[in-house]
Design a protein around this nucleic acid. Structure first.
Length: 271
DNA sequence: CTTGGGACCTGGCTGC
DNA sequence: TGCAGCCAGGTCCCAA
């Protein structure tokens, strides 16, 4: 599942291959992939454009183009970007060719991913909250944000309009590390609990970036290698398995209709 | 306005 | 073996 560490890894590994290059040819294999404009217009406006820079914002990947348009991609759950893979393989929804001969494939079995070509990327990412790893996201910001919402802390952490970048699995990992029950209401947390969550979020995400993301499902790096962050998971996707701290079986519940894993002994609480 | 839950999508896995 | 049903989940949309 591409969350912040996965998209950040993709950005870093794509960057040296595409920045400074121009798009020479595009093949769209799934008409649903491009949002807002026709395939014809998409290709006409994009072909010949040089990639000026590559940026991650939340879980969005933004290719800034020389003419100030932006090519924006969201991989959603099963999207991956592959550089010069051997063969083509299944589930490829688009192929981009670059002036240096590189081919970039958008592979996406569940077909949730979306691509936009927009004049201003802010129209898409402007509603996101502060970047979770940026200097703007301070403990004080988290305290103020959480105090305004009477919703489960797990739901608050994955709400991109509150904080940009945290997804389902890393929210579970951060709450495990902070020993907070996922259903505890955001506005009922103590200052100390919130500060623990803040530290845990940053640590979990930085560690996952160092591990090049978590290959729990379809995620692979652009070169095809797996990430290794999932080997460090203590709660996420470990239903029924022993808690690494106390041995109690990790429990799975639904929070906002999303599978949520936690240790009922280390993260006591409420419901 | 706030909060909660379903829809979208499909491959892989489990259990009868 | 075959098949129904569950599970993965980011974001949008609608209902209470």
């Amino acid at each position: 599942m591409p969350e912040l560490p996965e998209v950040e890894t993709i950005k870093s590994e794509l960057l040296p291959c595409v920045v400074g290059q121009s798009v020479t040819q595009i093949t769209i294999l799934d008409a649903k992939l491009v949002s807002g404009i026709s395939i014809e217009e998409f290709c006409r406006r994009l072909i010949g454009q040089a990639i000026k820079s590559l940026e991650r914002r939340g879980k969005y990947l933004i290719f800034h183009l020389a003419d100030t348009q932006s090519l924006v991609m969201h991989l959603k759950m099963s999207g991956t970007l592959l550089l010069n893979p051997q063969g083509t393989g299944h589930y490829v929804r688009a192929i981009f060719h670059f002036s240096n001969g590189i081919r970039l494939l958008f592979r996406d079995p569940r077909r949730f991913g979306v691509i936009w070509l927009v004049a201003d990327a802010e129209s898409l990412v402007g509603r996101l909250g502060p970047e979770v790893l940026s200097e703007k996201f301070t403990p004080r910001v988290l305290v103020q944000t959480l105090s305004k919402h009477h919703i489960p802390i797990k739901a608050a952490l994955v709400d991109q309009s509150l904080i940009a970048g945290i997804g389902n699995m890393y929210a579970d990992e951060a709450l495990f590390a902070a020993k907070i029950h996922p259903l505890k209401r955001a506005d009922t947390l103590s200052l100390e609990e919130t500060q623990n969550i803040y530290r845990s979020i940053r640590e979990v995400l930085r560690s996952a970036i160092n591990s090049k993301g978590a290959s729990v499902d379809t995620y692979v790096r652009p070169g095809g290698q797996l990430g290794t962050a999932h080997f460090n998971f203590k709660a996420a996707h470990r239903g029924g398995k022993p808690c690494p701290v106390c041995g109690t079986p990790i429990q799975r519940i639904l929070v906002r209709n999303r599978g949520s894993y936690f240790c009922p002994k280390c993260q006591p609480g409420t419901a």
